[in-house]
Amino acid sequence: MEFFDNHKKLFGTALGLFVGLTLLVAIIPAIKNQENNAPLPNAEKLSESALAGKQSFIANGCVACHTQQVRNVDMDKIWGARPGIAADYAAIKRTDFWRNTATLMGTERTGPDLTNIGNRQPSQAWNLLHLFQPRAVVEQSIMPAYPWLFEVKNEVGKDEVEVIVPDAFRKGISGKIIAKQEALDLVAYLQSLKQTPLPDGQAPMEFLYKNEEKPLTTNNGGAAPLPDGKTLYTQNCASCHQANGEGLKGAFPPVKGSPIVMGNDLDFYVSIIMQGYDARPEYAVMNAVGHDNNLSPEQVTAIINYERTSWGNNAKPVALEEVKKIIDLINSTAKK
């Protein structure tokens, strides 16, 4: 056939077909997407420090292991309150003339998703220590350490942030470990990663492929069944207070043998979980874990009972009703 024997016609046709399809599935949808989406009106802009932090997030290739996308499937619920939408990324423009747009959605989740990490783990002290040596806070972590974001000095200067590192992870270092500006910026960026709630009145997209309700354990003395306290503790508490409940000296207090955990002042205990705590200068600030992660009264009760009965702690379990009452009270005063 003449067509097949004429290189201009043959290669021209193949190229034309490919370019046509490229227009249809890549160029036109991409242009439409970048023109027809605007950021949510209540979305916060990144601070200067957070922007600088994003640059080192990009430079160090963090996206190789951390995604920033909440898919509309049930298993992604733990990474955000709602599935991600195009508007969430609409504010992200080309980094500069030399570098492309960094939506940082990622394709690998070797480590956790970071869409909402600013709500889940806002503590600066935790994040700095975690960057200096991830295994100091999460024993099983395989994340690289980033010691080049820190420097060793003899004195902590004004406005400088010292990182308290457990002895096991500061071998060969004598002096104070100080966070460089790059580390502070990177943490500022992580703290800024928060899912923007949809403007009032809008229902978010549904999560698909719902998990069936988990069978609830009945370790509550025959009372209402509760979710698994150990899992919830691992997900919400262990990164600071550690799996063995002993915390980290100079950073996070132990819950093992803690008078608050073992004692009878349930109001105080629940309020710390729900609203955070910042009364002891020798420890880092605790964020409002319960509120930030939308913990239900059942989940809070399960965590409390797990903490009261583990690692040699032997206080009596508490009842769901009492916890519910306290949380209702906290919520109603918070609204006023």
Partner: peptide, 22 residues
Amino acid sequence: MFLLVIAFVAYWPSWQNGLGET
């Protein structure tokens, strides 16, 4: 030929804001 088209589309340095990049 296709590689050149692909690289040109993906690297042209003046577009792909937001999800266009993805």
